[in-house]
Amino acid sequence: MAVNWLARLAAAAPAPVFTCIGPGIQAAVERLCLSPALDRVATPRAAAILLVAGEIPDHAQEALDRVHDQVPHPRQTFRWDGTGDPEPALRDLWRDLAAGGDTETDRRPDAPPNDWCGVGPHGQGGKGMMGGTPYGRPMAMTADDPRDGLALDAYTARLGPFVPMLPPGLVLEVTLQGDVIVSAEVRAAPFAQPDDASAPDFCAARMLRLVGLPRDADRVARGARLRAITALRAIPEGLGRHDGQDARGRLAGWLAGERGPEAAPALATLLPGLEWSEAMLVINSFSPATLAHVAISKEDA
């Protein structure tokens, strides 16, 4: 009784959905997530439903499984091919989950990525902070910092293909020191998306969401005109300058309904030296079509 009442109350909230977007379906998913019945969350940890949109290519399947396993129980996967309106089905699914419905088991093996090996009876150590592989991952080693040459730990990781703030499919291998990007390399190009994903409204909405204005982002994606002067001020001047226009200028252009530049510098030359938040703003200040073009031409080279 009490549980049912609580479950009904919980089910009235927007369904927390984490989206994994495949080729050709980005604009449709972003349009779907404008619905007040859905809450597009930033990490799988905050989600209950994993929305898999479109055909995920084979090379991204393992990454999809990894994201799937990070959704907390009870969880369900919902596959959508872009046709029809999936909202009623998603609402039903969320109602079941809120009442503690069925869950899905892990797809990846329940084992650490490496053996926890090191010096000592429990493999807990080595020399100073350098030894062992706690939780299956080796400790970071030092490298020269690009700012002032202090030798400090570098963190290398592959991001994507389902990071919400990057175009779907893009896999970036970045090396960070603190929050500064030391190097960046494109490992997989973004999935091909039709032209509607690069519409000025959607591009502007992505950037507004990134600077923390989700309501304004929704308004712009629905086609409302917005001056967003505060949002423009939130983006540092001169950031990601290309062809005489910086990230702020490109957002202003989108808000005025103009299409952005067709060409962009390679991400490997654009990102190093930027802080993480700046880098995400710079990437999102180019349309998905432009980024796909840049990444593919770089892979050919």
């Binding site: 990894r66 990525p113 389902f162």
Partner: peptide, 21 residues
């Protein structure tokens, strides 16, 4: 173990996140 891994949008890290900066 897969649930406790850091979220990188399906990507993997090379090292543990415990580091000096």
């Amino acid at each position: 173990a897969p649930m406790a891994a850091p979220f990188l949008g399906g990507g993997t890290p090379d090292t543990h996140a415990w580091q000096r900066f």
